[in-house]
């Protein structure tokens, strides 16, 4: 609390710092590649060119080099960005929706529902997610839908705690009880009135969870237990490139750089948004 007092007065809608602008630029580039990747990629990401195996970067026609089967690293990188971002987006949305719903249910019903949600949240926070995910994934097989759903369990407990806490305090405020007394259904109160009021906090949490999901997915794929070939993801490429670390380090370097820059960009954006938007941070 004392920190907020000590910091300079809010500069209103002043221009974001340079770092944040760069982060936004990078995120925009990634989104562009995720959406229009098929049109931008120089080649089909599975296309093999056996005459040009393991060519180094800046080779004519293969600007980031090729891998052991002569597949263009840049094209594979774009395809990987696409898959990794789709998984991370899908998972973040699922986890936010799930967590918020559970948080609202806990705030609305209190009693044993609340206790059960809190207990599950404690459990989720206490167990290393990678271990749980490893168990589930390998035993149910490797399916993209399942992977997204599983990643969608990551971080739900944070939204649930936030949504519960804020909904309880909103319920005590005038606007929520006013709608209730006008005859609004609980659903209307929560979705139309409380949700918009706590959305900024939830969005900030999403930007903070998103990079963790990217790291988690790439870790799983790196271990060979996430996205499966012929599909490719950033972690997959790193895992594959490890076999060629001495002869063709470029195979793993470019996806590694993308992972690092993307998590860095999204998490610094999240930190910046939190300082700016979130009224609950101290």
């Amino acid at each position: 609390m004392a920190l907020a007092e000590a910091s300079a007065p809010r500069p209103g809608l002043a221009r974001p710092p340079l770092g944040i602008l760069l982060a936004l630029l990078w995120i925009a580039l990634m989104l562009f590649l995720a959406v229009f990747g098929d049109f931008v990629a120089p080649q089909e990401f599975t296309a093999m060119d056996l005459m040009a195996r393991l060519s180094p970067p800046f080779t004519e026609g293969h600007w980031l080099g090729t891998d052991e089967l002569g597949r263009d690293v840049l094209s594979r990188l774009i395809a990987s960005i696409r898959v990794s971002l789709i998984i991370a987006f899908g998972a973040t949305l699922i986890s936010a929706a799930l967590g918020t719903t559970l948080g609202f249910l806990a705030a609305h019903f209190r009693g044993w529902v609340e206790q059960a949600v809190l207990m599950l949240a404690d459990f989720q926070a206490a167990m290393p997610f990678l271990i749980l995910a490893l168990a589930v994934l390998a035993f149910f097989g490797n399916d993209l839908t399942l992977l997204v759903l599983l990643m969608g369990l990551y971080g739900w407990e944070r939204y649930a705690r936030i949504a519960r806490g804020l909904a309880i305090s909103a319920g005590a405020q005038g606007y929520a009880s006013a709608v209730r007394q006008l005859g609004g259904t609980p659903r209307r109160v929560y979705l139309r009135h409380i949700l918009p009021n706590i959305a900024s906090t939830l969005i900030v949490s999403m930007t903070l969870v998103f990079p963790e999901v990217i790291l988690l997915e790439s870790g799983l794929s790196f271990l060979g237990l996430g996205v499966q070939p012929p599909m490719t993801s950033l972690g997959n490429m790193v895992g594959y490139g490890r076999e060629y670390i001495t002869r063709a380090p470029w195979i793993l370097l470019s996806p590694a750089v993308v992972i690092v820059l993307t998590t860095l960009a999204v998490s610094s954006l999240g930190d910046w948004l939190r300082d700016r938007l979130d009224p609950t941070t101290r």
Partner: peptide, 22 residues
């Protein structure tokens, strides 16, 4: 600290291998 959070351990490990082993 920020780098420590954004660089996944497998990337850091492989970079260390590249530098100190290869």
């Amino acid at each position: 600290a920020v780098a420590g959070f954004t660089v996944p351990s497998f990337v850091l490990g492989l970079v260390l291998v590249m530098v100190f082993s290869v």
